[in-house]
């Protein structure tokens, strides 16, 4: 395969295929994990990502998938750098992403500033309670709906 210099937007479009392995309805762009894409004059592509939680085990896989997705498009000179600052926040998640989360059955994060009521992603009832602050992944809490009785995950505001 031949490496060709690409525009950052082209590279970004390719990276739209890369999804969060824990929440496959969201791309890394939706999540706000993808921070920057630059293409140097010599064609070297630099992708900058930031972790959601310090111990997120998906980060290594995401890094591999970025490299694989670009390689499949003929771009094989790639570095993936991880930056910590500024720290990732759920405020970077787009409204489109939050709606996709809800449709997937995960209550999306509210504002980090206020105490938004958590609505059940199935029946939209506000009558919900926290079962545990820690759920199936670092970013989620375990909730239950008092109205429809269904348990569900909530993406925690951070």
């Amino acid at each position: 395969m031949v490496t060709t210099a690409r525009e950052p937007d082209t590279v970004r479009a390719i990276l739209e295929q890369v999804v969060d392995p824990e929440i496959p309805v969201l791309t890394i762009g939706d999540m706000g994990i993808l921070r920057d894409v630059t293409v140097a004059d010599d064609g070297m592509v630099r992708v900058v990502v930031t972790p959601t939680y310090s111990g997120c085990p998906a980060m290594d896989l995401i890094r591999d998938e970025i490299v694989d997705a670009l390689a499949a498009a003929g771009i094989d000179r790639v570095t993936v750098d991880m930056v910590f600052s500024p720290p990732w926040t759920t405020e970077w998640m787009s409204d489109r992403a939050k709606e996709k989360l809800r449709a997937f059955g995960i209550a999306p994060p509210g504002s980090t500033a206020g105490a938004d009521p958590v609505l059940c992603p199935r029946c939209a009832s506000a009558s919900t309670r926290t079962v545990s602050e820690f759920g199936s992944t670092a970013c989620k809490a375990l909730m239950v709906c008092e109205h429809c009785g269904e348990p569900f995950d909530r993406f925690k505001e951070i």
Binding site: S54, G55, C56, F84, V131, S132, F134, A138, L142
Partner: peptide, 20 residues
């Protein structure tokens, strides 16, 4: 069970910080 998940999550956060 919920506490098991909590402890696993907290351990993972500490491990992530340690790794970085």
């Amino acid at each position: 069970l919920e506490e098991d998940l909590a402890i696993a999550n907290i351990a993972l956060d500490h491990l992530g910080v340690a790794h970085h």
